[in-house]
Nucleic acid binder design. Sequence first.
DNA 1: TGTTATGTCTATAGAATTAATAGACTAAAA
DNA 2: TTTTAGTCTATTAATTCTATAGACATAACA
Lengths: 153, 153
Amino acid sequence: MISKKTIYAFKALIHLAGTPSGQPVLIADLARDENIPKKFLEFILLSLRKGGLLQSRVGKGGGYTLALPANKITIGSIVRILEGDIAPVQCLSTTNYARCEECRDEATCGIRLTMTDVNVALATVLDGLTLADMVERSEAARNTLQNVVDYSI
Amino acid sequence: MISKKTIYAFKALIHLAGTPSGQPVLIADLARDENIPKKFLEFILLSLRKGGLLQSRVGKGGGYTLALPANKITIGSIVRILEGDIAPVQCLSTTNYARCEECRDEATCGIRLTMTDVNVALATVLDGLTLADMVERSEAARNTLQNVVDYSI
DNA sequence: TGTTATGTCTATAGAATTAATAGACTAAAA
DNA sequence: TTTTAGTCTATTAATTCTATAGACATAACA
């Protein structure tokens, strides 16, 4: 289950992706519009910036903008930055590897050998989806619904 | 990331799958052999029994056995019992659905529309793997390693 | 029948993680 | 040099996860 922190990040990124490019958005505005606790959002945006997904400018006229086009920002990269990892077991993590406490032998651990498949499946789907997908799918759904409404009038 | 509870469940189930069929295993033995806190394991085994994956018998000669052959026990079913769910967002859960707090409109939520793919990928891989895979892959790895050792002598 | 073995159940305590807040600091612009 | 806005470090609050305790119920067997 994805944490609230990551959901907040998605919301903020979607908001930024929908802002005319170059126009910085203030943390305060983002927090208000998306209903995210401001201080918590600060921390999230900072993580995303350090992760290379956002750019910021301080001072008047400052704020946050995407550092890349939305279709270059994968959902996987967002999750990795905020959840620390994607792997279902830490002994499978590349970014955050740790041996499992009581693992007698990693090479023959049935849990690990099976979770590898899960890890690959997750990484594949998460790295195949981007912020642009989030925006586009939402728009597509809105349009479809709009048509339904139009017809029904 | 999978919880310790679920890892303990895997270990216990693998142990049971490796026990001659019909032979009940005591909680105490499982706890000792697999290095799992006994009371915690009690609770885990109880959950698995209520979930239909284990059978138990009380009294002398009692203990736990698998309720199904290992190749009929999917990893997905184990995870669902212990983690409550598989879905990355609760609004996508079938077993445990809940509307996301601040979701304005579920039908057009970009997060939800994207996480659907993740949900499907996860369910597919988890329901395609079984306890038997865990056991077999471990054995296969052991055999391979054994051969390497043999050759090197 | 009663004694022992074993799982069941409810409650609670402790630890770890996640979510949220506070306040001082730094950088940029006008 | 004043105002705006992000940065950083600490701390607190809430929640979830892990673990433990103890009384209870059930089955086997002498």
